[in-house]
């Protein structure tokens, strides 16, 4: 196991982590500020990817495709919020889970109805394709480096938005006491819609960025959704900083666990058994991580302790 391989795997883990962050950021805001469990967040990811594939197919422009992805997901998010979710704030979590689960089914079958059952084509633009050579002789795909940069930029911008702007103050205040800020004259329902649209746009962006290296197909959002929930539980619900740290932890654990656990087991087992048990354990690794974090800090790494 060479140093180059280890560095390459760490980059892979980072890239996976920042993409998870884009999903988790919206989810943690919606859960933390509005107290709402939104299972349909994975559908917004899928909508972003399908919108990007459609626009990229029509115009050939990847930048336009990304903008379309964010627009389409934000519009879908606003529609969901106004038509369905707004009626659920006062109800308990079980009703929210049921309603947003229904939304998953509606969006999945609706997408199939419009686009068919076969995966769509969305590719990396030419100017980002192919590998680059990093210092130390590591060949690494340029597009994955771009993904890491975009993810970190979005994280920085979100951090500024939350800590330095008026709407950020309102979001933080809404998380702590939404009745009080409503009494102070902030239009809380408009604030909720804005947060929802922001979270949806980030999910759409993630779907489009990841769709270019994976397959754009119905149901692509649900596996990511589960990981995003793990991320926000680890990071602490409602905390953007927690979502970023949690996403990077999950990304690195998942990627490095998948590589190094089988290697570790090979030290004292025969190769095929080591491969099988190492793979099995590595798929549990992030849940074990979540368990350890919750025992240590029940509210998550950056969650508000009550």
């Amino acid at each position: 196991m060479s140093t180059i391989l280890i560095i390459e795997q760490i980059l892979n883990g980072l890239q996976f982590g920042v993409m998870l962050f884009l999903m988790a950021a919206g989810l943690t805001l919606i859960f933390g500020v509005m107290g709402l469990i939104n299972l349909a967040h994975g559908s917004l990811y899928m909508i972003g990817a399908f919108a990007a594939a459609t626009v990229a197919g029509l115009t050939g422009s990847f930048v336009l495709a990304l903008m379309a992805a964010m627009m389409a997901a934000a519009i879908a998010g606003v529609l969901i919020e106004v038509l369905v979710i707004r009626r659920l704030y006062a109800t308990d979590h079980l009703d929210q889970v049921l309603a947003t689960f229904a939304l998953i089914l509606i969006f999945s079958e609706g997408t199939r109805w419009v686009f068919g059952s076969f995966p769509l084509f969305l590719n990396i633009p030419d100017y980002f394709s192919g590998p680059v050579t990093l210092p130390g002789g590591i060949e690494y795909p340029l597009y994955r480096l771009v993904l890491i940069c975009v993810g970190l930029l979005v994280a920085g911008a979100l951090g500024l938005l939350i800590t330095r702007t008026r709407i950020g103050i309102q979001i933080r205040a809404g998380k702590d006491d939404h009745e009080m800020i409503a009494a102070l004259g902030v239009d809380i329902s408009k604030l909720y819609t804005v947060i929802f649209a922001l979270g949806a746009a980030l999910a759409g962006l993630a779907g489009a960025l990841v769709g270019a290296i994976q397959s754009v197909q119905v149901g692509m959002g649900e596996p990511v959704l589960i990981l995003a929930f793990v991320v926000i539980v680890i990071g602490g619900i409602g905390s953007i900083k927690g979502a970023l740290i949690g996403a990077l932890l999950v990304g690195l654990t998942d990627t490095l666990g998948g590589v190094f656990l089988p290697e570790l087991f090979k030290l004292f087992m025969e190769p095929s058994a080591a491969q099988a048990s190492g793979s099995a354990l590595s798929s549990m690794a992030i849940y074990i991580l979540m368990g350890v974090v919750l025992v240590w800090r029940p509210a998550g790494l950056f969650g508000a302790r009550k």
Partner: peptide
Amino acid sequence: QTDYASEIAQIRA
């Protein structure tokens, strides 16, 4: 699984 970056790195090595 949808991301094969880690397997591809192993193939390369």
